[in-house]
């Protein structure tokens, strides 16, 4: 198992390097100028010096490796200095063109909002999907299964930017503000939970973004679990278990479900990056100032380092969860390990 994990981890390093290169290359092709947003009164010589200090004039490969060094060496060292009080010598951190502050600090500020919304919706989505998948498979072609199929088809097809707007129209506009079913359409990230009342408010403002994101998760995972359960319920070991007189509940929930979850866990792990992508749109609708919104602002402002770093973080997430999916697969299905 250890060698398997180790081998998988090694394979993901070149992938990550390639992605870093592609991202850097595409973003560097942009004609955007780091001094473009500065006042026009700055003379050209000074502008040239600013460009030089930001290292924009160096050859492409030098810039790429410097950026890579900043991400892989400088930022982790800085993080260690901050948390453990070590005194590592660190170089220049990645600076945003827009705010002139380290990009990682911006990301750390934005991270909790995104993680809260995305994390909750993913957990909620999976928790809803599992029972739906089990029942749909156990009662195949029943009305419940038909309804589940339809709902997941809708979940696949209605894009988050429309479902988001729909729930806003329904819950914040049609329902009057005094009603207990009214929900705020703007997510207030400065809100702090201190007591029961503020918790209730936090809960209410999270319902809509979480619902929108969870709809897609539920649609996908319940379909996968249904298919996987159907495969397993027709297997011989299920018949054997029933013949032995094992209770129906244990046959379905212990024997069949356990084996059905193997491919589904992979799907769950692989879905995490996609939901971060969905969060870009959801954050735009509900005005959450998270990572996605930071990315959009940076793209519009031509803020090359921020765009590169956030995109690279998304890529890192994808590779990381691919790795986790691989390893989990190895844990649950021993046959995979000995390839």
């Amino acid at each position: 198992m250890l060698t398997y994990t180790f081998r998988r981890t090694l394979v993901s390093i070149p992938t990550l390097l390639f992605i870093a290169f592609v991202i850097f290359f595409i973003v560097k092709l942009s004609p955007s100028d780091p001094t473009g947003n500065l006042p026009l009164t700055i003379p050209p010589e000074v502008r040239e010096k600013i460009r030089e200090s930001l290292g924009v004039n160096q050859p492409f490969l030098v810039q790429f490796f410097l950026w890579l060094k900043q991400i892989v060496v400088t930022e982790p060292l800085h993080w260690m200095n901050e948390t453990f009080g070590t005194q590592f010598e660190i170089g220049q951190r990645i600076l945003s063109y827009q705010t002139r502050s380290p990009v990682m600090d911006l990301i750390v500020q934005r991270m909790p909002q995104t993680l809260w919304v995305v994390g909750t919706s993913y957990v909620v989505g999976v928790l809803i999907a599992v029972p739906i998948g089990i029942i749909s498979a156990y009662r195949q072609y029943s009305w419940f299964d038909q309804a589940g199929t339809f709902v997941s088809m809708v979940g696949f097809s209605v894009p988050p930017f429309f479902s988001g707007v729909l729930v806003i129209i329904l819950f914040s506009i049609i329902i009057p503000r005094e009603s207990m079913f009214w929900l705020p359409s703007i997510y207030d990230t400065t809100h702090e939970v201190v007591g029961w009342e503020s918790f209730k408010f936090q809960f209410r403002q999270m319902i809509m973004p979480v619902m929108v994101l969870a709809l897609q998760t539920t649609a996908q995972i319940s379909r996968f679990l249904r298919a996987s359960m159907l495969d397993n319920l027709n297997q011989d070991y299920v018949r054997t278990a029933r013949a032995k007189g094992v209770k129906e509940r244990s046959v379905v929930l212990l024997h069949a479900l356990r084996n059905s979850m193997i491919p589904v866990i992979t799907v769950i792990a692989l879905g995490v990056p996609a939901i971060f992508g969905g969060a870009i749109i959801t954050e735009q609708i509900f005005k959450v100032n998270g990572l996605g919104q930071l990315l959009i602002i940076a793209i519009q402002g031509g803020d090359v380092p921020t765009v590169q770093t956030i995109t690279f973080m998304f890529a890192g997430l994808i590779v990381l969860f691919n790795l986790i999916a691989d390893i989990l697969y190895g844990v649950f299905d021993p046959r995979i390990r000995y390839d």
Partner: peptide
């Protein structure tokens, strides 16, 4: 596989913008 590991939505945004 490498293409599958790219973060598509952010990259598309960047490409279109550029």
């Amino acid at each position: 596989d490498l293409f599958l590991a790219l973060p598509l939505l952010p990259l598309l945004l960047v490409i279109v913008m550029l």
